[in-house]
């Protein structure tokens, strides 16, 4: 059994695809380092990430298949579901053969699976545009915590940089220890630990109570339909929504957030 092991980054995965092509071999699995456990019968190949090779593959996807296919592959990568690497691998393998018409083959299992997963990721990213809840901290900083199923932080950040252009904000994916930090000029992606406590601004709490009041007043009692509500807004998201009971009293007072050095800068 041939197993490719890469560093867990998207360029790493693309390098693996490059190597597979030029070595003329098909791995049975492609796994990130931290997911890999040694087994007796596997033949391991450690892939060293090479930006040049990765760029070549990415460009080839765009030229030989389509930009849409490249975006699909990236979405599936962000899904962080088990086996995502092989889904992408199989999808692109079909793509090298079928070319630009790849995404017309909706009945093809490899294409269908990638479409299904990519759709889930895009749906969650869109949903999160509405569900991010900023809380006003001291020093005019708007801070939001999210725990999305998929790693969609970098998909949603440009939207908030355009929209909340005149305020400082942090969107913190506490599940992955990752934060998008914006300073009214540019946003960066940086690792950030879950803060033990945060210090809220006093006036901010007033608007939170106004929002809770609004939320409970706007429902029409004689049309009450909790099942419908849950189907649009699954309960796993309620934890970070200030209007839901689940979110009350999660934060205590006073502490400082200290972002570490940024890993990537986006303008």
């Amino acid at each position: 059994m041939l197993v490719y092991i890469y560093d867990g980054s998207f360029p790493g995965l693309l390098t693996a695809i490059y190597e597979s092509y030029y070595r003329r071999e098909k791995p049975e699995e492609i796994l990130a380092q931290d997911q890999w456990q040694h087994t007796l019968f596997a033949q391991e190949v450690v892939i060293k990430t090479d930006e040049k090779k990765a760029d070549k593959v990415y460009q080839a996807i765009k030229d030989k298949i389509s930009g849409f296919a490249a975006r699909n592959a990236y979405c599936v990568f962000l899904a962080e579901v088990p086996g995502a690497e092989m889904l992408i691998y199989n999808y692109l393998s079909r793509g090298w053969k079928l070319g630009a018409k790849l995404d017309f083959h909706l009945a093809d299992e490899a294409v269908l699976q990638v479409h299904t997963v990519a759709k889930k990721v895009r749906q969650e990213a869109h949903r999160m545009l509405g569900l991010v809840r900023f809380r006003l901290l001291k020093h005019e900083l708007y801070y939001a915590q999210i725990e999305p199923d998929h790693n969609i932080l970098q998909m949603i950040s440009p939207h908030f940089a355009r929209r909340m252009a005149d305020q400082n904000w942090i969107i913190h994916d506490v599940k992955r220890g990752l934060a998008a930090v914006y300073n009214q000029v540019e946003w960066v992606l940086t690792p950030l630990e879950r803060p033990k406590t945060i210090s809220l601004d006093e006036t901010g709490l007033f608007y939170e109570s106004l929002w809770q009041k609004y939320f409970s007043s706007i429902a029409i009692k004689s049309r009450k339909n909790l099942r419908l509500q849950r189907s649009f807004l699954p309960k796993r998201y309620w934890k970070h929504l200030v209007e839901m009971d689940e979110s009350r009293s999660r934060f205590a007072e006073s502490s400082v957030l200290s972002p570490q050095s940024p890993v990537k800068t986006y303008k």
């Binding site: 869109h126 545009l129 939207h159 939320f215 706007i218 429902a219 509500q229 807004l233």
Partner: peptide
């Protein structure tokens, strides 16, 4: 220096108890 923009397809921000967005 302004605040806000609109999003072509619209965005739902929450759902009330009657299931309306």
């Amino acid at each position: 220096g302004g605040l806000g923009n609109s999003y072509a397809s619209g965005i739902c921000h929450s759902w009330s108890e009657d299931g309306r967005c």
